[in-house]
Design a protein around this nucleic acid. Structure first.
Lengths: 218, 218
DNA sequence: TAGATTGTTAATCGATTAACAATC
DNA sequence: TAGATTGTTAATCGATTAACAATC
């Protein structure tokens, strides 16, 4: 029951989205095979993953969608609101603040910080941009758990350190550079640009566009 | 030399960012151990990964940063510009269009599409928002390779199908729902929200915040 | 009952780590 | 030369897949 492997956790987040969808369509039962089909997985993987949860399926029917949704929510912590702040009020930071999905998923953006003093006081979605000097105070006072780093790559590490010293427990790094997990905070990278490069590699691997480097060896 | 595992490709993108950084600082040599330290890896992993590349290090010195950078660029296709379009001119789509990092990394945003006719004609960073009806034509004419999906989750699959039928070879899915790879296009998910849930799980696993569900079993 | 689907164990597959000879 | 670092092989570790008895 304890300590799921990361790949399992990542798939659970997919199951949750899918199950929420079909719940809305009033589908009551779902089998491991249906989940697998919908998410391009195998039913074996799905059953293996779900075995980490406090849920039992029923032969010939599968899993009750409502229960599955509830259990997944609880396991992923999606049933509680978590307080987060965004550092960096550039395009990315703003998009995050404006992106309604966070709120819907239980992530409450409590504040936005930026080092550009011209921006201080401006409001985004009702959330005021504050100065970096106030970060520590606000994070402490409002019991912020998560900091999202949306600053230029070169500032990422110092912002991470500041957030952790202010008491944040988890960091979402939207930068493309590596952030060393200071203290015992956890860091997860979003890696949008790395994802694009990964995509490019997969595309070329598939039908060998480009490069044309014929593995000269011997 | 062919077909690297995905985890290796993902790390190569990190190496590239790091090596570009230290190149700018005029550092000429870097050892597997230094790379490992900087990116929270082991030197063994780094050497294993670099063995997939057409590069040789030198005992006692390591790898020449300039060469390493060049080889990584080539391997990841980061040395050529790739044409991409964004579908969805909401907050996320706009942030992507405005995010200079794409351009700097060789991803040229050629067009933005949206189904909201009120937005057609508006310009973002000099790129005009076009109607969905023009997608096929523009993708074909401008030889677009990559489509970024920044629409509501419910529309993701149909947008994906449209992009693929227009000739796109790769899809970056910014939605939180699963996109089935149509045709032989490749899909990579960014999963920002899933990343947040993963982060939350890791945070709780670390110092057991929340849940408090004591694995009742037997 | 017959057939479908779970839950779980065992087998396979793949990735990471360790170790060490080669080499600069 | 001595010591550091590569490149690579082998060992370990972990995740996915296959298989199948249990069960509804």
């Amino acid at each position: 029951m304890k300590k799921m492997p990361i790949p399992v956790v990542q798939r659970l987040t997919k199951y949750l989205v899918y199950v929420q969808d079909i719940c809305k369509e009033d589908i009551v039962w779902v089998s491991s095979n249906e989940i697998a089909q919908a998410l391009s997985l195998t039913s074996s993987t799905v059953r293996q993953d779900l075995s980490h949860l406090e849920i039992s399926g029923i032969s010939k029917r599968g899993y009750e969608t409502a229960i599955l949704q509830r259990v997944l929510c609880r396991e992923l912590g999606a049933d509680k609101t978590v307080n987060a702040v965004i550092v960096g009020a550039g395009n990315l930071g703003r998009a995050l603040a404006l992106h309604g999905e966070f709120g819907r998923r239980g992530f409450g953006i409590c504040a936005i910080f930026d080092s550009n003093t011209d921006l201080i006081g401006e409001k985004i979605e009702g959330i005021e941009i504050s100065s970096m000097e106030k970060l520590k105070e606000i994070v402490k006072k409002r019991k912020i758990d998560i900091g999202m780093i949306a600053v230029p790559a070169s500032a990422a590490q110092s912002v991470a350190d500041l957030l952790v010293s202010a008491g944040v427990k988890g960091l979402l790094n939207l930068t493309l550079s590596h952030v060393c997990p200071a203290g015992n905070a956890v860091v997860v990278d979003t890696r949008i640009i790395a994802n694009l490069q990964e995509l490019l590699y997969l595309m070329r691997a598939k039908d060998s566009i480009g490069s044309g480097v014929s593995a000269r060896k011997t």
